[in-house]
């Protein structure tokens, strides 16, 4: 479903300096799988996911989503994905129902089909109760549920979730995680980025460890432990990430 080959992205900072946010990232993710992109803040998770969501154009490398190239077939890619990030917000003056309607329509759904999808999605995420309240009067947890519903209203085969639980309390996080699991069980390919080790271990079938713009290791928790000779994911993560830290940072 998601195939990423040596994807790179360099930015230019306001001073004109080039910054490599992502270098030669390679990973793949199949249908029904939850793939966790695990890394510290600033490691390149968001850049990777934004490139895959076609918001950013990669400077080198290729990636396909559901068989579509992210550069040359960006529109088809956007049709096949649902995208939620920690920073995406909802339109404050719309209601959840209107939000789903709007995004469904942008995805080309119309008429009775659109109505049915909106109804189904509202019930899937248990939003019906507050479906007609303005978004800005919803609690944080409700909002994130609506956000997820917004991302899947067009029933995409692939979900790209960029730290969707950041800023949520454990209870709300749990509901989001449950929703993600349900979606994966229904056959969706989920790419999930996080910096929380427990969440990654609990949720993801496979992990990619990302640090300093590079995917440094890939595999299941057991594989990563074996690779680093650690007894748990925590040990493996630090072994992999610290190995890549700048010498000056390690000395400190």
């Amino acid at each position: 479903m998601i195939e990423v080959q040596q994807l790179s992205k360099t930015y230019e900072d306001p001073g004109g300096e080039e910054i490599a946010a992502l270098t030669d990232a390679t990973l793949s993710c199949a249908a029904g799988e939850i793939y966790g992109l695990l890394g510290p803040n600033g490691a390149g998770k968001t850049t990777t996911l934004r490139c895959l969501a076609t918001i950013l154009a990669p400077t080198a490398g290729t990636a396909t989503i559901a068989g579509h190239d992210i550069v040359s077939q960006s529109e088809q890619v956007r049709r096949s994905i649902g995208f939620v990030s920690a920073t995406t917000a909802l339109y404050a003056r719309l209601t959840p129902r209107e939000t789903l309607h709007f995004f469904g329509a942008l995805h080309g759904l119309q008429g009775a089909k659109l109505e049915a999808r909106v109804r189904d999605t509202l019930s899937l995420f248990a939003i019906e109760e507050y479906a007609d309240r303005p978004n800005d009067r919803l609690s944080t947890g409700m909002k994130q549920r609506v956000n997820l519903a917004r991302a899947v209203v067009h029933d995409p085969p692939v979900l790209i979730l960029d730290e969707p639980t950041t800023g949520l309390d454990p209870v709300v996080s749990r509901t989001v995680e449950d929703a993600v699991k349900t979606l994966a069980q229904s056959g969706k390919c989920v790419l999930f980025s996080t910096h929380l080790l427990d969440q990654a271990e609990d949720l993801c079938s496979r992990l990619g460890i990302i640090a300093h713009g590079r995917v440094v290791a890939e595999g299941s928790v057991a594989e990563l432990c074996a690779q680093t000779g650690s007894s748990n994911l925590r040990g493996a993560f630090f072994a992999l990430v610290e190995d890549r830290l700048e010498p000056t940072m390690r000395d400190e």
């Binding site: 918001i55 529109e75 956007r78 049709r79 920073t87 995406t88 917000a89 404050a92 942008l106 080309g108």
Partner: peptide
């Protein structure tokens, strides 16, 4: 500023 633009940009709308 609010981040709603991101969700618009990932729709098939050009």
């Amino acid at each position: 500023e609010l981040g709603t633009l991101e969700s618009l940009l990932v729709t098939p709308a050009a």
